[in-house]
Design a protein around this nucleic acid. Structure first.
Length: 471
RNA sequence: GUCCCCAUCGUCUAGUCGGCCUAGGACAUCGCCCUUUCACGGCGACAACAGGGGUUCGAAUCCCCUUGGGGAUGCCA
């Protein structure tokens, strides 16, 4: 059997973490089994669907590298087909028109809740044959079986049984004639020959309705696999409240694609104790049975850790390209060689590319201010002779290389009977503006002799102009 | 309220059909080491089988109940 999976988002927002993981699972399962992966946009809710959301979802998928073999199909372009199916159901007596208004249904629900009954449409029009009320636009409802039960053989949750008594006659076409979700999913999954439906377990409750619908249409239900939800750090369903939940926000932050995929795949799925998975490994190891049953919580710290791991391994040229783009505009023309050096110095020190860009400005631009705390400590009158002497020596260094620079500073410290810890920090603050920069010798090497000397001069005049505090 | 699902460290999880689990790994946190800073790295510490009943020679693993959490209960998907 040719495996066919699908990802079927509704375009009512960006591609969020949960959706991305569902897509990843579907994609992995299709690819791992030599099957096809279909993308379908479920845009039947015209009120909430937007083109911007479609674009955002497509972009997110592309960034993640989740390529699809067919689609994107848009449900709004398949209304003729849905109407055909609805008509067929009507003709066969498997569906009927219901003339209840939204207000009536609302009142019915309220009364049932007040009487501690389960809210359910009372099927008053199920066998109606009289004269329909005038001026009411009907909805079309599916005649759900009245007894028996639906059994779902879920690939991750196991067997789930739901009594038909719990299910009411769901609306398959709105009063304006447009089809609703449960109908369109069923028609599409059948028409597109979907064999495995992998989706979030918030859909578990829809599954028995859909199975009943499929059976009424003479189809064979696909195999279902409901992945647990991803929750925010407060245990609630992920939403904007929890900070960045869109995949593209992480792309912007400078999370590597590989890190994102790795994080996503480990959220609710595991293979023993293994933490790191390349895409190839995921494809080789992914199985639906490895998916967890319980919901998991999104943890951005672990994502960042993973990102750092991938940053260490990433291609230097690609990182340099990205770094240049993220630098302030005036600095983007920095020499390639220098960008590559900066990447090497920074890749182990940062958790994201945006952080790398922020902390790398100092290589390309003289400090515009000194970090107050370390400046107060190391850029005082006491440092003046050190900086002045070192500036002279560094300016005369014939070979501007890390080893020579290191030797120059160390020799100076030796001669003066100073510890390196007395000499290094003032130079660091003077040149970098702050106290947390990469190894001093390599940093100076990368910044370049001319700029270093210039920066030391600036720091020297800064100190000379300091108003000596009354002591 | 009703229905469905879930339940191991703060978080992600390991835990092949009950014994090798005085519960392992990773992130986070905290120490120590490395180090001119910050990181990286190394070593170590802290930290969990929700509770109660069973079944069994033996249960984190099986059953039941309770509790807790999530989802659904839409002319949203």
């Amino acid at each position: 059997m040719q495996v066919r999976t699908r990802f079927a988002p509704s375009p009512t927002g960006y591609l969020h973490i949960g959706g991305a993981r569902t897509a990843l699972f579907s994609w992995l399962f299709a690819r791992a089994n030599g099957g096809s992966f279909v993308l379908r946009i479920e845009d039947t809710d015209k009120e909430r669907s937007t083109q911007a959301s479609v674009d955002a979802i497509l972009e997110g998928m592309e960034w993640l590298g989740l390529d699809y073999d067919e689609g994107p199909f848009y449900q709004t372009q398949r209304f003729d087909r849905y109407n055909e199916v609805i008509q067929k159901l009507l003709d066969e007596g498997k569906a009927y028109r219901c003339y209840c208004s939204k207000e009536e249904l609302e009142a019915m629900r309220e009364e049932q809740v007040a009487n501690k009954q389960r809210p359910q449409y009372d099927r008053r029009y199920r066998d109606f044959s009289g004269e329909p009320p005038a001026g009411v636009a009907a909805v079309i409802r599916f005649k759900n079986p009245l007894d028996g039960a639906v059994v779902i053989a879920d690939q991750v949750l196991g067997q789930i049984t739901i009594s038909n008594e719990e299910l009411d006659d769901l609306i398959i076409a709105r009063s304006d004639g447009t089809p609703t979700y449960n109908l369109t999913v069923v028609v599409d999954d059948m028409d597109m020959n979907i064999t495995h439906v992998i989706r979030g377990d918030d859909h578990i409750n829809n599954t028995p309705r859909q199975i009943n619908l499929i059976k009424a249409l003479g189809g064979i239900p696909p195999i279902y696999a409901h992945a647990p939800m991803i929750l925010g750090d407060d245990g609630k369903r992920m939403s904007k409240r929890h900070g960045a939940v869109s995949v593209s926000a992480y792309a912007e932050e400078g999370i590597l694609r590989e890190a994102m995929l790795n994080y996503l795949v480990r959220l609710g799925w595991s293979h023993g104790d293994q933490e790191m998975f390349s895409t190839a490994e995921m494809l080789a190891l992914f199985k639906l049975t490895g998916i967890n049953k319980s919901a998991s919580t999104f943890d951005v710290d672990k994502l960042h850790w993973l990102n750092q791991q991938y940053l260490k391994e990433a291609d230097a040229n690609e990182l340099a390209d990205d770094l240049a783009k993220r630098l302030p505009e005036a600095l983007q023309a920095a020499p390639r060689e220098m960008l590559l050096q900066v990447v090497e110095l920074q890749r182990e020190r940062v958790k994201s590319l945006s952080e790398m860009a922020e902390t790398s400005v100092l290589f390309f631009q003289d400090p515009t201010a000194y970090d107050p705390k370390p400046a107060k400590k190391f850029l005082g009158k006491a440092s003046l002779p050190i900086l002045t002497d070192l500036k002279e020596r560094l300016a005369q260094l014939a070979h501007w290389q890390a080893e020579a620079i290191q030797g120059c500073i160390a020799d100076y410290a030796d001669e003066k009977g100073l510890k390196f810890g007395k000499v290094g920090p003032p130079v660091r603050i003077a040149v970098c503006g702050n106290a947390n920069s990469p190894a001093l010798d390599q940093t100076l090497t990368t910044i370049g002799q001319e700029a270093v000397v210039r920066r030391l001069n600036t720091a020297i005049s800064y100190i000379e102009n300091l108003v000596e505090p009354a002591s």
